[in-house]
Design a binder for these strands. Sequence first.
DNA 1: CTCGTTGCAAACTCTTTGCAATAAC
DNA 2: GTTATTGCAAAGAGTTTGCAACGAG
Lengths: 145, 145
Amino acid sequence: MDWQTFLSKAGYRLSEPRKTIMKLMETTEKPLNPLGIHRLLREQGVHLGLVSVYRTLELFLSLGLISQVFQQDGLVGYLPSSFGHHHFIVCQNCQKAVEFAGTEDMQDLIQRIRAETHFQVREHLLQFFGLCPECQSLLKDGEKQ
Amino acid sequence: MDWQTFLSKAGYRLSEPRKTIMKLMETTEKPLNPLGIHRLLREQGVHLGLVSVYRTLELFLSLGLISQVFQQDGLVGYLPSSFGHHHFIVCQNCQKAVEFAGTEDMQDLIQRIRAETHFQVREHLLQFFGLCPECQSLLKDGEKQ
DNA sequence: CTCGTTGCAAACTCTTTGCAATAAC
DNA sequence: GTTATTGCAAAGAGTTTGCAACGAG
């Protein structure tokens, strides 16, 4: 089911701003934040209130249509997400982000945490940071680590 | 080496505000943010400019004396951290956070990500959310999942 | 005594709220 | 036509900056 159908079935309207924002998000590989989306659309000549961007992102997030992406110092933006669990690796140089598949590997760790802390484990936030192939090449001379 | 020695050796002064803030952070088990620290100290009769709290946290973070703690919707605060890598599990009900030990389990996953995405993996953000033992008891009747 | 550090006020940025106008269904 | 959604303006929250006064070393 595509996102438009999903939105309708959930009782929300398929407005122009929502279509515009989702279209933009689907064509970007870098996490976008509200201000960024607003600026990008302006540059494309699309007029759209900043408030609507906030409200649209809030809605999409609550429906799981997009996911939050973090850098090491906090939330940097949003990206469209397939259903289920979402993990990204984000380039520290250009912020390009790629989603990677699930985490069966996680079960052992979860068991250990349960034993160590006696917490009931319910969710997790897992994200990697590194260099995308392009930036690896760019940085070959210099600070290559 | 304790944090005070560490601070001195790094060329920073051991001021009263810094001592006060670190003392507070060492005695809490819930992540604290700037405003929270400011409020708590006021309640204890300690007067301290909010700006100084910000600057102190910034300094401590840059020195690795404290770590950032996230909830699913972003940064919620800071906690003191031992050196090296820091992972927390945070209670979704009361925000109590506990640090747990490293992540050897991570190497397989990192290999897989490298193969899947061709990113060079350099850092990661891993945090768990759940219920602490106390809140598990409290919530036994009701929304226990 | 010197210079890093603090505190205040003010500026700034980001985000949220209220309400009338608009447009999706 | 009805009701969700938008856009504006204004309020609110959190964070940063400039600068004079202070205090740790």
